[in-house]
Amino acid sequence: MSLETILFYFFASICAVTSVLVVVRREPVFSALFLVLNFASLAGIYVTLYAQFIAVVQVIVYAGAIMVLFLFVIMLLRPEKEKSIFSGNPTLQKLSIGVGVLVFFQLIYIIIAGTISSGKSVAAEQRIRTGEVEFIGRELITNYLLPFESIAFLLLAATIGALVISKKKFE
């Protein structure tokens, strides 16, 4: 077994275990902690796929910024004292179990019936180069300029929306 495979199984198992733990833990703070671990192991998988830049950005954006805000909300609102969503609504519980089972079998089907499509063999140096920030930057402002700019526009709109909502008085 090559080092890459060992690393993949290492990170993938952490990833799978923590993503289950996120859902089953009762204290929201622990769920948040396991989600952070999940993001970190995903970043590890990205590194084994030669996508170093994506790995680092994954940690900065998801683990470093978004989850901190989540934690903030959890710590200040103390949701463990809130009543569970399902206790007052049995129909919702049945519905969500149904959706969950459906998605689970769909995923199983995809894994069993799907074929692995990575027939292309690319030289290792080429693969390493595509994960570097220079390559991604060049692609973003040439081939993917329109999506890149529209995402920027979307983020600007979201920022303005947040500002409007956080204003106390509407005039």
Partner: peptide, 19 residues
């Protein structure tokens, strides 16, 4: 290759210790 970003990423995890 993305060394500076790596430093920023790790220091941004430092918030968790304190929170």
């Amino acid at each position: 290759n993305s060394g500076v970003l790596l430093v920023l990423a790790l220091t941004s995890l430092g918030v968790y210790a304190i929170t």
